[in-house]
Amino acid sequence: MVESKTEAKSSEVGVTNPYRRTEHCGKIHAYRCDKGVGVIGIDISKDHLITSRGRVRKYKNNKRGYEEILKMKPCTIVLEPTGVYAIRPSQYFKEKGIKVLQVSPNILSREKEFRGKKTDFYDAEKLENMVDKAKEYDYNPLRELVTLYLFLKNIEVKYRNRLKRALFLVSDNDKISKERLEKLAKGDFTQEELYNLEYTPIVLEEIRVLAKTLLETQEKLEEVRRMIEEQVPQDHVLLTIQGVGKLAAGIIIGIVGDIKRFPKPESFVAYCGLDPVVESSGKSVVLRGISKRGDAVLRRAFYLAALTAIKVNPIIKRFYEDHKGRLRGKKLITACARKLAIITWAVLYYNKPFDASE
C-alpha cells in the first residue's frame, strides 16, 4: 500500500504514480485498478486529444486516436466538455466500458490555479486532479432531435420573414396561409393582386423559391416533431402535468437531461431564466421582471405551455386567478410559466406523477 503522503509526479510522459493527491481537496485517492494506468485527464480540441499520461500524450481526435488511448487501459477518463468535440470521444470511451467524468466549465473558471498556467498538457494533468469535482458523463440522445428541431424552426422563421418581405414588395397582402403557400410554391399567381413594377418579375421568382423551401422546411419540422414525440414514453411523469404535451416534454427532457443537477427548484427556475430580478435599497424592494439569463428555449417552452395550463391545469389556473389583479398580460403568463417550471422540477426530481391535490 502506498503511504498517505505519496503524491504523483508529473513528467514529460505524464503522471508516474497511480495514487494521486487531489490538490483541491487535499485527499489521497486510490486510482489504481486492474486496468493499468487508472485515471487519465484529457484536454480536447477539434483535432487533438492531449492526455495527462502516456509517452505520446497527443493523439488525433478520431477513432485511431481513441484506440491508442485505450491501449493504456484506463479505468476512468476526466475531461472538460468542449461542446460537440467532446461528445464523440466521451461516448466512444463510455461504450468501451471506461468511466467518463466531465468537469463543468463553471467549476474550471473558478479554479484560479487551473487557469494560471495555460498549456494543453498542463490542463490535462490538472483535469486528472479534479475527479472529486467531476460528474459522470451521460449523453441524452433526445437532445440531438431537440436541437435539430430548433435549428429547423429558426430556418422556418427566417424563410417566413423573408417571404413576407417579398410579398410586401409586390402585394398589399403579406399573410401566409397553407393554401396560399402551396400556390406560391407552384408559381401560381393568378389570384394575386400584384403591383406591376419594374422589379416584380424578379420578386415573383424569389417568392416561388421561398415558398417552396418554406413548405419543405415545414414538412421536415413536422417529421422531427413526430420523432421527438415518439421518444417520450406514454407513461412519462411529465405528461401527467396538464398543459405539458409530448413536444414540450421532449424539449424539456432533451435540454435538461439529469434533473438531479438542480438540487433546488430555484436553481432550475434560474436555469430557465425565469427567476425574478430583485432590486432592494433599505426597506424598498422592487421586482424588475425576469433575468432571462437561462436557456431561452426552455423559457419559451414553459411560456407556451403556461398558455394552455391556465385553462386546463387546476393549480396554474388557480395561480392565474389569484394574481391577475396584481399582474397583467405577459407578466402574468411569465409568472405562471415560473410556477409551471417549479411543478416540472418537483415531478422530475422526485419522479412522481403530478397530483393537483398536493
Rank of each mutant, 00 (worst) to 15 (best):
C33P: 01
Y31L: 13
L287D: 09
H323W: 12
F93L: 15
E223C: 03
L148T: 14
I87C: 04
F189Q: 03
E216P: 00
K339S: 06
T119L: 15
S4F: 06
W345Q: 02
V278H: 00
V100E: 02
D258Y: 04
N173M: 05
K46I: 02
Y350A: 11
M1C: 04
K9P: 01
V56K: 11
E279G: 00
S52V: 02
K63F: 06
D43K: 01
K135G: 00
L184S: 04
S10Y: 14
P265S: 09
K352M: 08
I228E: 04
V256D: 03
P233L: 12
V103M: 02
N351P: 06
K73A: 10
N196E: 15
E136K: 01
F168R: 09
V39M: 07
R20D: 09
K60R: 14
L127Y: 06
V209N: 06
Y122G: 01
I310L: 08
I342D: 03
P263A: 05
L142N: 11
V2I: 09
A134Y: 02
I98S: 02
R328I: 11
L79T: 10
K178T: 13
Y303I: 15
G325Y: 12
K292Q: 14
L169W: 07
P314G: 02
V100K: 01
G273W: 00
E128N: 11
I40S: 00
C33V: 02
A86L: 01
E193V: 15
Q102L: 12
Y350G: 02
A356H: 10
I44T: 08
G289K: 04
E205T: 13
S291L: 06
V203I: 15
V286K: 12
S280H: 12
E67L: 15
P81N: 06
C33M: 06
F121M: 13
P81H: 05
G54S: 07
E230M: 07
I316L: 14
R326F: 11
L327W: 05
E192V: 04
W345I: 00
M130H: 04
